[in-house]
């Protein structure tokens, strides 16, 4: 351009300012979201689901693991729930294992030794109230429902794996076929129809207890008011909603 009228700093700043205003307008109008989706006869504001595990009752049959795998098409080598076996030896060593293979059956352990104390501990997603996994999801695919269940939005998850790293309890994994994050959903598709989660349904000894914290007379509330219980890794500040009755100090 031959016209070298100088474009001084003031005009430049005014142009940038006008541009900012335009940006403001551009970000502003967002189509309002449609009204809350129909939840048919299930009202999620009326429930607050939680879970308790009675470690003294677990016999390590792993029926829960098999039931969960069948109910939710859990991929092989990954677990939405599992049962840990702790064997504390006379010298203080602790051996922990999981019946991870095939049909999930605990056999007599290969190594013998002087077992002083041994027990089973079922584990699952703790459905924390202040879940770290929800906090760290970069796209808003991990969320808490109003009835206290922590879920993953399979259609929105990008599979970055941040939530898997953030969970202190090892409850999450990346689904090898769907390539999204996956975890225990408390069988959301069952509990919203008044049924029990598959693991609770299959447990033969009543070691797994599921209930509604909003029901003060319900089984779960009663147990929590009567028994002593602990949480896993309470120092993480995640406020887990899975309460362990009779939790041993060796369990992390």
């Amino acid at each position: 351009m031959t016209d070298c009228k100088s474009f001084n700093r003031r005009e430049f700043i005014e142009l940038v300012g006008a541009g900012s205003g335009l940006l403001l307008v551009a970000c502003g109008p967002v189509p309002p979201p449609p009204g809350a989706q129909a939840k048919d006869d299930y009202d999620w504001t009326k429930h607050y689901w939680a879970y308790a595990v009675d470690t003294a009752k677990c016999i390590g049959c792993c029926a829960c693991m098999r039931a969960c795998r069948a109910e939710n098409d859990v991929p092989e080598q990954y677990f939405r729930t599992w049962v840990e076996r702790y064997r504390i030896m006379a010298g203080g060593e602790v051996h922990v294992d999981v019946a991870a293979k095939d049909d999930h059956v605990f056999e007599k352990p290969a190594e013998g030794g002087d077992v002083v104390k041994a027990f089973f501990v079922p584990k699952l997603c703790n459905h924390c109230e202040k879940s770290v996994c929800n906090q760290v999801c970069p796209v808003g695919a991990a969320y808490n429902t109003k009835d206290g269940v922590v879920l993953v939005d399979r259609k929105h998850c990008i599979g970055c794996g941040y939530c898997v790293q953030a969970c202190p309890y090892g409850s999450r994994y990346i689904h090898p076929q769907l390539h999204v994050a996956d975890k225990c959903t408390l069988c959301y598709h069952r509990i919203t129809k008044g049924m029990l989660p598959a693991c609770v349904h299959a447990c033969p000894t009543g070691a797994r207890i599921f209930g509604d914290l909003k029901d003060p007379k319900g089984e779960l509330s009663t147990i929590l008011n009567q028994r002593r219980f602990r949480l896993l890794k309470p120092e993480m500040g995640t406020h887990p909603k899975c309460y362990y009755l009779g939790l041993d100090r060796e369990v992390v």
């Binding site: 990954y78 051996h95 922990v96 999981v98 794996g161 790293q165 994994y173």
Partner: peptide, 12 residues
């Protein structure tokens, strides 16, 4: 020698 079963495969 115990890892949580979901941790056997490294994610990142």
């Amino acid at each position: 020698d115990y890892v949580f079963p979901n941790e056997i495969n490294v994610t990142w």
